[in-house]
Design a protein around this nucleic acid. Sequence first.
RNA 1: GCCGGGGUGACAGAGCGGCUAAUGUGACCGACUGCAGAUCGGUUUCCUGGGGGUUCGACUCCCUCCCCCGGCACCA
Length: 469
Amino acid sequence: MPLRVYNTLSRKKEAFVPLHGKRVSMFVCGITPQDQTHLGHAKTYVAFDVVARYLRSKGYHVFYLQNVTDIEDRIIAKMKSTRRAWDDIVAQYFAEFRDVMERLQCTSVDVYAFATDYIDEIVEQIQGLIRKGHAYVAEDKSVYFDTTTFSGWGKLSGQKVEELRPGARIEIEERKRHPADFVLWRAQKPGEPAWESPWGPGRPGWHIEDTAITIRHFGVQYDLHGGGTELAFPHHEAEIAQAESFTGVTPFVRYWMHGGMVMVSGAEMHKSLGNFWPVQAALERYEPEVLRFFLINVQYRGPIDFAPELLEEAKRSYERLRETVRSVEAERRRAPPKGKADPGLRDATKNSLAAFDAAMSDDFNTREAIAVLFEFARDVNKAIESGVGRGPLDGAAEAFRTFGDVLGLFQMKPSETDRLDGVLDLIVGLREDARKRKDFATADRIRDALAAVGIVLEDARDGVRWKLK
RNA sequence: GCCGGGGUGACAGAGCGGCUAAUGUGACCGACUGCAGAUCGGUUUCCUGGGGGUUCGACUCCCUCCCCCGGCACCA
């Protein structure tokens, strides 16, 4: 199926056509490492991880770039409150972020680009913008972008400058000529980290790093830019203004994608609201795959109103799928090469692969794709009950691997399982002997004892299965 | 106020101008089982915020109103 992507720029789903054949340049706004990674971050990065994975599965060569804002107001605030070095804070929280990402199987990023590694490009862009009359140096030697010189201001978010309420939430800096103007270079204040520039020591503004980084890696125009929906205005608007003013090339980005927020009982998750859920805390109670499943169990553009009960539900749902994946793997090992006639598993597999692709190609509709998995699971379970042979089972297993690779799910841990295999075969065998003797007391004792250490036995029609709880 | 996204069964959450509104969770019944679990089958919601319009036909398109969420100038 041809891929269609909802483009914030046009507010429509559009056919996805990269600039250069099968090469896709993809950029997603990354974090400011100054506090714990929370579920909101996780939702965004899991969503775009799936985007990259799906594109790759379709044969695109994706270069996925993510920035890291390693110098910014909040880092400086943290620096002051903790009396730690800014780069020390960044190192700590970025390491934690990477750890969380890895556990959530967000493995598709090619390069994490740190803002402070691009000071040269940033300075060059700011100089260019000043030269072209799009930026001005303020009294304190900070540099601001002059939004009145950019006619496209507001085209991404549909905002009209005159309709906005200046200072609705954040105080306007008095040095600006226009409330919409934004800082490109912030002059150093005493005690703050700074880099040299033609305007004196200072640090980059928040928006400029992204255009400096992407122009360096991708050139003046690229395919896909993602981020949380709250970034569309003003952040992404500012990126467009900078890049298009600097290069004269329009559009800077062809497809803008924005993901929905994680809410907590109706309010945006935010540290200041006290409803902040660090991913670490969620991972103490739930497996990473369960959390990942939970996060992609909605269309990425929609919000998730988070509640612990919903994670509980996700766990039960996901377990159903994983259970089927497990039994396929177990069955194909013991099924005879020629089992009974295929009750239609090959067809079901083929149809599910097609339906999955159709769902994903419709703006990465993971919820729809997961619905396909559940239907497929039912077909597979039925086929297993009817004693299907190894061939169709191999096909089904292969399909689950395809689904799992795209969604980042069903990553089994064979080593751990293999180690227990032999031991459990023995124990299960002894219990089977007891059951044959109708010595259910012993059989139940074995099962209960294993359950107590987290190993669950299930007596299926064709043998005993065990799994780790 | 302006911009953007939404309002679907007990809950979560898709879809589509017409097929019993997908899928999951929950609940209940049945099959299988020594029991349990898993699995399978069935039942459970005849309804898509209110009103109007277009249409042979609207949850789906248009208008309007109400409500919720996000953004409004350093939040993923």
